[in-house]
Amino acid sequence: MKPLWEQELFQAIAGDSLHPGGRAASAEGLQWLRAHQLLTCGQWAVDFGCGRGATLALLKQYGCRIIGLDRTRSHACPGTDIPLICADLAHLPLRSGSIDLGVCECVLSVLSDPLAGLLEIARVLAPCGACLVSDLSGEVSGQACAKASCLNGAKTLAQWQTLFQTAGFRLLHRQDHSAALRKLGAQLLWYGDKARFDFDFCGLLRQKFGYQLWLLQKE
């Protein structure tokens, strides 16, 4: 079975952003950064796991110099002239301290070692550089819904915060976009065949999961 985000139906529902909340959620996070002068014209911005480049397009509108980064070239930023790097988050081909702004949306939860990814992002960020991270929150107890699911990478708020701190980030602000996750889940349930997704609908039903957007700053 293909991962959820590579399935046609998911892509059709989630749109270009390939994560809950879509462009609107990303924009809300970026606006917060801008309001706090952490996102300014001319900055170097990298989307770690850029997918089709929806958030990069937003960053470009804000006047950032953008770079997309994804593990495979095949589905990243099709039909755009966005500079694209093909690399693994655990080994970024970027100089230390060379980036002003990082974006990492719904990527950490699918990594086997999210801390390694965060540490790499912290390395390439300039001191006091900001990073927008969004991901799944919730408790994964293992036996709840035996089905394999991309929601298995979810962590509790406390676990995420510990990860960020361990990687050397300060948590500036959190936005709760859980309603968007429910909406996405409802769309998948409506249009899809439940059995064909590796998606923990029953966990979502029991309100186990949420979707968070954090704004972090390298310490």
Binding site: D176, H177, S178, A179, L181, Q207, G210
Partner: peptide, 11 residues
């Protein structure tokens, strides 16, 4: 204290 979003404690 959540203004919008998931109200998990509703239940």
């Amino acid at each position: 204290t959540i203004v919008k979003g998931l109200h998990t404690a509703n239940a």
